[in-house]
Write a protein that binds this DNA or RNA. Structure first.
Lengths: 203, 203
DNA sequence: GTCTATAGCGCGATAGAC
DNA sequence: GTCTATCGCGCTATAGAC
């Protein structure tokens, strides 16, 4: 499919580079421990211990444990939100719709391990900092995937299409990336044709 | 679609009826508070307070807070697992596949509010008692939805189909149930035809 | 601006009396 | 079957050293 958007430029690195060295070290250690023991299974004490400082030192850089998590996932969310904004800026139509899906799939594939980790560490997902932000992007993506006047039919297909794509990618932790991209593109096209047919049926 | 399975008989009531009156009162109060403040947002102290007893009294009936949650969701899981078992017992083929999906959709519709609550209260979803059991049912459903030799293609479509159906139902908290059932049945058929086409493509 | 020391508080959980 | 008492732990908060 033709790529309508400019390639992504800002992103993962940005938000972290602006931090002090100490804060960045906290983030690195926290990420390592979270991936190893999970969010709930990692205490601020453990993070502080591995850094060789006290809990209060960690607390100086981040107001709370949730704040730390939010900082960790911010770059990935910023990337997705940026992608959504640029897609929403395109003129409405079938091209924008297809573009949204293919960009979303690329995004998922780019962050495959991270997404797989997140969907495994449900404790982290559950925190408001992550959960509520995810709700927002989810809504916007649904609206792009199944445009309409917020009617039941478009909401139904919005939910179906976005969940199907995410489910397809995440059900495949080890499949070859190019094969996956091709197959999911087929799935994507199939879903879009289904939505068009449903719209014609209902008018 | 023809209903191949016998109607469900055991279920929600069973696990709760076998309990003592006190234990049942604990479950009732816990459910009320969980739905109101979420799982994490509800302490055993609050549960005990509303019951007019102490935390320790609650602990007599349930070994842990997770145990309480497990008891709450057990009936719904038992129903789903029973449904899966009976479907798996059918001879392999397109009929079983269609049956699995329509039974699953009915199940989702039957427990719409509960499912919506669960997918909102991420903290409850995350507990091992719920999460791991859900993983199991998810796997079995995927296998029924996209049968195959555990190859990448069937796993991809298994994830896509099941997530699409759940996404479609859950994206519609207030839509009319019959309309929803009809539309989701269309979606279901569309997805199955997509899977068949993908299989033909790949051989 | 960066950290240490220390304390508070609520939580889930347990032991044992009645 | 229910209670009192208590434990240990985790996040949070503040005062103040450097």
């Amino acid at each position: 499919m033709a790529r309508v958007l400019r390639p992504y430029r800002r992103g993962v690195a940005v938000a972290q580079v602006e931090r002090s060295g100490s804060a960045q070290r906290v983030l690195d250690v926290a990420l390592a421990l979270f991936t190893e023991h999970g969010f709930d299974g990692t205490s601020l004490q453990q993070i502080a211990d591995r850094l060789g400082v006290t809990k209060a030192a960690v607390y100086y850089h981040f107001r709370s444990k949730d704040d730390l998590l939010a900082a960790l996932v911010d770059p990935a969310f910023a990337e997705l939100e940026d992608l959504l904004s640029r897609t929403e800026a395109l003129p409405r139509g079938a091209a924008r719709q297809k573009c949204a899906l293919s960009e979303f799939v690329d995004y998922l594939l780019r962050h495959r391990e991270a997404a797989a980790w997140m969907s495994r560490d449900a404790a982290a997902l559950t925190r408001p900092a992550v959960w509520e932000r995810a709700q927002g992007t989810q809504r916007r993506l649904e609206a792009l995937a199944a445009p309409g006047e917020d009617d039941p039919l478009s909401r139904l297909w919005g939910g179906a299409i976005t969940q199907a794509l995410a489910g397809a990618v995440l059900a495949q932790p080890h499949a070859d990336e190019d094969w996956l991209r091709t197959e999911v593109a087929e799935l994507s096209a199939h879903l879009l044709s289904g939505y068009r047919a449903a719209r014609r049926r209902q008018g």
